Each structure stands twice: as structure tokens, then as C-alpha cells.
Amino acid sequence: MGTFRCCSFSSITNIEVKNTILHAFLLAITTGMRQGEILALRWKDINFESKTSR
């Protein structure tokens, strides 16, 4: 697995795609969450007012 360069990440985030895998990928990149943590997320775990997750 390779690393992302800055231009690679920005090109991914500029793509407007309604794709669950892309959203999970971006969540992992921006938060540092691992695969198991992302897959275990439920709506009740997200606080939209404070913009945090449990």
C-alpha cells in the first residue's frame, strides 16, 4: 500500500461521487479511524451539534 501525496488527496476530495466506500475512505483519512471503527459506527454515535463521534 502506498502513501498519498497532497495532490492525490485533493483530487479525491474534489470528486463528487455518491459512494459509501468513498465516504468511508475520506472518514478514515480525515479522522484516523480504523476500518473496524468505521464499520461499527451507528447514527446514535454521531453528535451533529458538537460535530463529534463516540
Rank of each mutant, 00 (worst) to 15 (best):
E49K: 14
F48W: 13
A40D: 09
A24S: 15
L27D: 03
N47S: 11
V17F: 12
R42V: 08
T30N: 14
E16R: 02
N14E: 04
L39C: 02
E37I: 00
E37S: 02
F25H: 10
E49A: 03
T20I: 11
V17L: 14
I12R: 05
D45F: 07
Q35K: 04
L41S: 00
F9E: 09
F9Q: 09
V17W: 10
V17C: 07
I21D: 11
W43T: 06
H23N: 12
R34W: 09
F48M: 10
K18W: 07
G32A: 11
T31H: 10
T31R: 04
I12L: 15
W43I: 14
L26E: 06
L41D: 01
I21S: 04
K44Y: 06
R42N: 13
L39P: 00
A40R: 14
W43M: 08
H23T: 05
I29G: 00
A40C: 05
L39R: 05
A24Y: 12
N19D: 15
K18H: 12
I29S: 02
I21F: 14
E16L: 01
I38E: 02
I38T: 01
M33Q: 03
I15L: 13
L26W: 10
N19F: 12
L26H: 04
F48G: 03
I38K: 01
A40Q: 08
S11M: 07
N19Y: 09
L27Y: 13
S10C: 05
Q35G: 00
E49G: 02
L26G: 01
I38Y: 05
R34M: 11
F25M: 13
S10G: 02
I12Y: 13
S11A: 12
S10V: 08
H23R: 06
F9S: 05
I12C: 05
I12T: 03
G32V: 12
K44N: 10
T31Q: 06
T13S: 10
I15M: 08
I15N: 03
K44M: 06
E16A: 01
I12Q: 08
L22W: 15
F9T: 05
K18R: 11
R34L: 09
N47P: 02
T20H: 14
I29K: 08
E16Q: 03
T30L: 15
N14W: 05
N47I: 07
A28K: 14
T31A: 02
W43S: 03
E37V: 00
S11F: 09
E16K: 05
A28Q: 15
G32I: 08
F9L: 15
